[in-house]
Amino acid sequence: MKYPYFPGCTLYTKAKKLDDAGRECSQKLGFELDELKDWTCCGATFPLVNDYHIAMSGPTRILADTKARGDDKLVTLCSVCFNVLKRTNHVMRNDEERRAKITDFIERDYHGEVEVLHYLQLLRDEIGFDTLREKVVKPLTGLKVACYYGCLLLRPVKEIGLDAMENPTIFEEFIRALGAEPVEFPYKVECCGAFQTVHSMTTATRCSHDILRSAKNSGADLVITTCPLCQFNLDDRQPEIQKSHTAFSAIPVLYFTQLLALALDLPAAGLGFERNLIDPLPLLKEKGIVS
């Protein structure tokens, strides 16, 4: 099975390993991610005021390109791209006036025909977590994982519709299929501080510290995420957290595709763990997952 795939800017740079591992795993799982040609940025922010149309012209072009290929599904891995594309599609399907304005503006014919899928959703709804469990070669037994959703994968629920807002479970089901144990922690849908990290260190460390402390107190060995910005805030901000909270001890923060790759027995050397600020290898070796 071949799925049209939109990687997005960050998956070519900072979050290359989210992308690499996702593509490699797809081969093992029997489907192919077919990257759209000449894609542009999704805009990274969904415009919230009714008369701001230019920000939706980018994502609408991406969706119209998918339709023009003759496809009716589009897969993304990044929470931000998923959020922007999914919400733009919601407008294209339900708001006739805005759809007419935007499609006239970009001179394309698009009515929301494409279904935007997050990779996790593809695993759940198209492949099935039971099939995934059967394809796991190396179960991640004994690994306690905090599944961190953040905001963009879930909210607003009416437009995104991936899972429940207060207590989603898709990530935990995924982790169980890999043979690891998800921990329940109350901050799993809390915001990481998002782009405010760029200019307010105190905001970024406060939000990240709350989330990581909550995960650790629930017994997690590591945290997983689908979002490049959350991964930055939770992983790369840990040295700053340690400066202001001396009792805090480091915890690795991985992309979910990196764990998926380990469970499918892809070589750890190719999974880019050296790019994680908090090195997960000592933990993975201790658990017998990586030799």
């Binding site: 919230l48 905001c151 909210r155 629920v157």
Partner: peptide
């Protein structure tokens, strides 16, 4: 300072979204 995380809007009993 609002980052449009949509937590408030998801919880509002009158379904008012503050991010927009």
């Amino acid at each position: 300072m609002c980052v449009s995380c949509e937590t408030c809007g998801s919880r509002c009993p009158n379904e008012i979204r503050i991010a927009p």
